Amino acid sequence: MAGRPTMRDVAAAAGVSHQTVSRVVNDERSVTEPVRERVRAAITALGYRPSAGGRAMARGRTEVVALVVPHAAGFTFGNDHLMRLIGGAEQEVAARGYGLLLSTREPGGDAMSAFTRFDRRSLVDGFLVEGGAGLTGLSDLLAQGYPAVVIGYADDDLPMVHPDDEGGAYAVVQHLLALGHRRIGIVNGPAENHLAMAARRTGVTRAFADAHLHPDPTLTDRGDFTAESGQAAAVRLFDRADPPTAVFAFNDGMALGVLQWLRESGTPGISVAGFDDTSAAPVAGLTSVALQSQDLGRRAAQLLVDQLNGKPPSERRTIVPSRLMVRSSTTPPTQPKSGSRRRGSHNVKG
C-alpha cells in the first residue's frame, strides 16, 4: 500500500463502511463488539493513525482543556507548588488524550485577565482553575456553559480539589505541642486567601482543644506570604515581654523570613514550621507541610476529563491528604537567656 493508510483502507480491510470505522475510532457504542474487534485488528495491521483534529470535529470538541492560573507568569514559573500542580495536570490530560493550554495573568493586568481571553467556545472544552488568587472571571465562563474544576476552595456547587489545609495545620501544632511548646506564635496569610487560611486556623484551634489547652490570641500576626513579611511579623512577635517559643507560619516563605530574623537577631532556640514544603524547605531544614501538589493537579484534571466524557463527579469536594515533613527547625523549647528578648529587633523594619 502506497502512502499513509486511510480510513477507507481500514474499512476495506475490515469489510465494513468507513462510517463504521469512524464510529469505532470515536468510541461510539452503536457498533457491536465483534465488528469493533475486526476494525481494531485492521487498524493495527495497517498502522492507521486517526487524525486528532478529525476526531475532535466528529465529537464537537477541541480535545484541549485550559488551566487558568491567575498569577503573573514570573510568579507562576518560579513557584514550586504551582509548577508541580501544572505538571500533574498536564500528565493526566495527556494520558487521557487531551492537550493542556496554560493561561496566566497578563503583564500589568489583574487576575481577571487570565480568564478574558476565553470568550469563544471554540478554544477549549473545559477549565481547571487554580483558586489561590480568587475566582474572579470564572462566573463568566460558567455562564457560557463550560465545565470547570477548581483547584482550591469554591462554592459548593462546583467540583473542587484542595489540600487538607486543616489537617496539615493540626499536624504542625500537634507536633509542636508534643515537643513541649505552649506559647506558639502564628503568622497568618493575607485576608483575601480566607478559605485556605480559615481551614489552617481551624486546624490550629482544634489541635490546642484536643490537647485541652488554649492558645494565646495575642501571639497571632499576619503576612503576605513573602519572606519580608515573615521577618516583619517576627519583629512584632518577639518584641514583647513573653515571646513565643515556637512560630508556625502559614507558608514556607514567611517561615523562612522568621528563620532569617532569628538568625540575624541572635535569638536561638526558637522552633519554626511552615506550610507548602517548597524546595527551599529541606535545604533550610524547615519543618513543613507537603501539599502533594502534583496529585492536586492530577486529581483535578481527572475530574474534568471525566465530566467531558459524561461522568459527573460523585462528590463535589475532593481533599488530597497533606504530609508533615519534620526537620531540624523544630526542637523542644529551651529557656531563653535573660535580656535576649529584643536583641536585634531593629534589624528589620516592621
Rank of each mutant, 00 (worst) to 15 (best):
G3T: 08
R4C: 08
A13D: 10
Q19K: 13
T20P: 08
V21P: 04
V21F: 07
S22Y: 13
S22G: 13
V24C: 06
V25H: 08
V25G: 10
N26E: 04
E28H: 14
E33L: 11
V35N: 03
V39Q: 05
V39Y: 02
R40T: 01
G47R: 05
P50N: 04
G53V: 11
G53T: 10
A56T: 09
A58Y: 11
R59D: 03
G60K: 10
A66E: 03
G74F: 03
G78H: 01
L82N: 05
I86K: 05
I86W: 08
G88L: 05
A89I: 06
E90R: 13
A95Y: 00
L100G: 04
L101E: 04
L101S: 07
L102Q: 11
S103D: 03
D110C: 00
M112A: 15
S113G: 04
D119I: 00
R121L: 14
S122I: 03
S122L: 01
D125V: 07
F127D: 12
V129K: 05
A133D: 13
A133W: 02
G134E: 05
D140E: 14
L141I: 07
Q144I: 01
G145W: 12
G145A: 10
Y146Q: 09
P147K: 11
V150M: 12
A154G: 09
D155V: 05
D156K: 08
D156E: 15
D157I: 10
V161T: 06
V161P: 01
G168Q: 06
A169F: 07
A169D: 13
V172W: 01
V173R: 03
H175N: 08
L176S: 00
L177Y: 11
L179C: 12
R182H: 12
R183F: 09
I184K: 09
V187M: 08
E192T: 11
A196C: 13
T202H: 11
V204T: 11
T205M: 12
A207G: 10
F208W: 02
L219R: 07
D224P: 09
F225I: 00
F225Y: 15
T226S: 15
A227E: 12
S229I: 06
S229G: 13
G230R: 07
Q231R: 14
L237W: 02
L237F: 04
A241M: 11
P243Y: 10
T245K: 06
D252H: 02
D252Y: 05
L256Y: 04
W261H: 13
L262Q: 08
T267H: 12
P268N: 09
S271V: 03
T278L: 10
A281P: 00
P282K: 06
L286W: 00
L286S: 00
T287S: 09
S288K: 07
L291D: 00
L296P: 01
R298M: 08
R299D: 07
L303T: 04
D306P: 06
L308W: 02
E315I: 03
R317E: 14
T318Y: 09
I319T: 14
P321G: 02
M325A: 01
V326G: 05
S328M: 02
P336H: 05
S338N: 06
G339R: 12
R341N: 12
R342Y: 13
G344E: 10
K349Q: 14
G350V: 15
